[in-house]
Nucleic acid binder design. Structure first.
Lengths: 157, 157
DNA sequence: CGTGAAATATGTATCGT
DNA sequence: ACGATACATATTTCACG
């Protein structure tokens, strides 16, 4: 499906602030509320908008460890990759998983309350896979930026 | 500020689906709509909820490259780190930035439309810093998981 | 897409526990 | 301090042009 300028403006705005009422959104893009609502619904049903979520401040919910894990597999076999992925993606500590090219095969972003929980994660996901050759743990001291918005070709303003 | 079970249930629900009306949220946690609204507002004003956003499907907005970049600095000086951070965080292609311990100093998640844009990013952020010793580029072929929710100690259900 | 009206939801004031 | 009820305001949503 193709998006016009108005659709992309809606996306640009909503990915920065989804708390806007449809009415205010409509006036910001210069449309009547029903016309605007129809577009938002279309964008949601077409899957352009996958969901709307509240972003929490991790700092305020007790100490949380953000850890980047690089995983290198033994053999490059699709079925073994898939087996690892299933376990990784199913684990609630794994917040992001990227399959990358190069020496490393996967990069995970793992969020856990403490190092004990990270040990458990290692047992459950990493050591549990016999095709995993090695992994490298990068413990984050600060998360300096976390932005969920992507470029849609239109400014939100 | 301390959160009770009800607050944490609200957070658990809203970080999965912020499209819920206050009325439905209220009935799900067993409160009257006004009482529920007061809590949500308190959680927003206290900064526990930092914002509400629409998450878009990157696949449907033209091809996008997700790239993990590991950055290693020359000298471990706070002011030079800060200078790098300012540039990195200000760049719109940088979606996430973690300051990590170990051999690597920073991990960035960069999202760009293509390799040309990545080259520009390298010039603007990486090569522009004379305290940067080396960086490693991990190009993502698939993003298998992207979850913005964190554990709040209560299930959303 | 816009208008207007009906159905819902939000927000406020007040009272009770 | 917290929650419920009732009422007023605002928003969503539908039918129609």
């Amino acid at each position: 499906m193709s998006l016009d300028r108005t659709d992309r403006r809606i996306l640009a705005i909503l990915q920065l602030d989804a708390r806007l009422t449809n009415q205010r959104l409509a006036e910001r893009i210069g449309l009547s509320p029903p016309a605007c609502l129809k577009r938002v619904r279309r964008l949601t049903e077409s899957g352009h908008i996958t969901r709307q979520v509240a972003i929490l401040d991790p700092e305020r919910l007790g100490p949380l460890l953000h850890i980047v894990v690089e995983v290198t597999m033994e053999r490059d076999r699709k079925d073994l990759y898939q087996r690892f992925l299933l376990r990784a993606v199913a684990n609630p500590a794994v917040k992001q998983c990227y399959q990358v090219t190069g020496e490393v095969d996967f990069v995970l972003v793992v969020v856990v309350p403490d190092m004990n929980a990270y040990d458990r994660f290692c047992d459950d996901v990493l050591y549990a896979d016999d095709n995993l050759r090695k992994f490298r743990t990068l413990v984050s001291r600060f998360r300096n930026k976390f932005d969920t918005a992507i470029d849609v070709g239109e400014p939100a303003m």
